[in-house]
Structure formats: C-alpha cells, structure tokens
Design a protein around this nucleic acid. Structure first.
Lengths: 133, 133
DNA sequence: AATGGAAATGAAATCCATTTTCACTTAGGC
DNA sequence: GCCTAAGTGAAAATGGATTTCATTTCCATT
C-alpha cells in the first residue's frame, strides 16, 4: 500500500541522516543541519526543526532531552530505553532499561494520574573518562 | 560548631523561599526571583541564579530539569524521587519512585560506566486534566 | 497544460532562559 | 582602619528554538 502522504524530499533527507547515524547515536538539530547540508546545501535550519517535529509526530525519530545537555538530540525510533550521560565529557549512551508497565500502572493509580511515557536518564562517568580522569 | 562559611544573607533568603514552598513544590528561577523580591526589592535575577547554584552545591536545594518544561525548577533537598509532568497543563508533581541501587549497579557493570545519579520523569495527564479534558 | 489552494521553504527577526562582563559595594580577617 | 576576596546588579551577550512573512513547490482537479 502507498503511504497516505509521501514524506517531502527534505524531510526524507533528515530522516535518512538520523537513520544512518544508527541506534545508540544521538544528533542535535545543528549536527543534523550540517549533515543534511552536505547533500542539500541550500536547506535552512528552520526546515530541519520543522522536519524533526514532523518526523517525531510520525514516529520515525525520537527526541531526547537529557538534563545537562545544552540542546535536544534526536535518534532513530526504536525500542524504548534509557540514556546515560557522562557528566565529564557529555557523551550520551543508550542504556537497556525500562520501568515495567505494571510498575507504571501502580504508580499511576497511586498518584491519580495517567502515565503515557517515561524518561529515564542516568548520570555519571563513562568508561573513557574513568580511565583517563 | 559554627558553619565554616555562613550563607550570605541573600542566598539565605533564596533558600528560605524554596524551603517555604515545601516538598513537592517546584519553582523556576523567575518565580523565586519574584518571591525573594517581595522581601528584598533590590535583588537582581543574576543573584538568584548564582545563589541557586551555590545552594545546589551545598546540597540545600535540588535542581530538576524536566523534559518539556521551558525552564529549570528548584525544590528543597529531600529524599530522592521521580517527577511527573502533565503534558496538558505543565504541572509537575513528585512521584515516589527510585530505581534500586542494585539495579543501577548491574546496569553500570553491564555498560562499563559509573552511575552517580538517576533522573526519572513520567509524562501524561494529571487528574485535573483527565477530568476536564 | 492551466489553476488554485495547501504545504513547504529560507531568511530574518524574535523570544527567552541563562551566562558573562564589569564596575561597584560589602564583609571579615588582620 | 585596610586589604582582599566575595558578593552584587545592570546591561550586554549567548544560543537554542520559534515565529513571521513573502515566496515557491507540490498536486489534485479542471
């Protein structure tokens, strides 16, 4: 079947760049801008932001906002996971961890709210910084 | 014993405002600025930022950075917990939840990193918004 | 092909939280 | 009192993200 609305060419380029980065890779809008620009020199930063928002709505990419990082980052959509941020070098890594649904349900009931999403971030020192510092 | 360095008067005021807000209450720097200004009209926003940083270093207040919120928030230091943010009205609530230390240890070992802190945020709809929306 | 409306685009302006700069004042040890 | 370090506030700078707006592209329909 054909997609109901094909992705605009520029948005597809943005998606490609994020996808090619791969799982576990995180790019900021500026980084994405630079990479897309290599293939489409005229494109503007505005379009990158708009494209990322659209792609997020469509579920193609995920936005992560990691405390301590100075910009949001994007990653290809994939299985839910947590993130680790090295407070020394700023590196962000994926961490295989999810709070199980029944725990969320219990918390939601307990607090009288509806939980739709979880964001888990760990902070510390990555192996590289532990070795060198 | 006397504290090694007494807290500057303005920083103490900032601390008071955050403390009086109480557990489960979250204030942005601007909100704190407004409240401190009621008692110390001449104080500048710069001092608020500097004071909050110092108070955080001293362990008197905690900074929380919740994805989706447009400013950082501060709360009195207390037992570790998670946060819930209503994506509809922006309200932030405390949630009694911590990832246990042995889980963190296992993850840290598995990923070859040193985990010093955890930040857990849930997103969804608060009771008020569920009722009205 | 022509047309019309919706979506996409980029440059520039704007927004806004936070940080930096800098000249000045305050506090406390001597 | 003096001196140095710390604290202070106004204003400017920073920088990521958003908005505005005039223009262009796309595409379904003639």
């Amino acid at each position: 079947m054909m997609p109901s609305t094909p992705l605009p060419k520029n948005y597809q380029l943005i998606r490609d760049v994020v996808d090619e980065c791969g799982l576990g890779c995180h790019l900021t809008p500026s980084e994405i801008y630079a990479k897309v620009r290599e293939r489409q020199p005229g494109i503007g930063l505005t379009t990158i932001y708009r494209g990322l928002e659209r792609l997020r709505e469509l579920g193609f990419v995920s936005e992560i906002e990691v405390p301590g990082a100075d910009a949001a980052a994007y990653e290809p959509a994939g299985p839910h996971h947590a993130h680790f941020r090295c407070s020394s070098c700023g590196r962000i890594e994926d961490v295989a961890f999810v709070i199980p649904a029944n725990t969320l349900d219990a918390l939601a009931r307990e607090h009288g709210v509806e939980i739709k999403d979880q964001r888990v971030t760990f902070e510390g020192r990555c192996s590289r910084c532990t070795a060198s510092g």
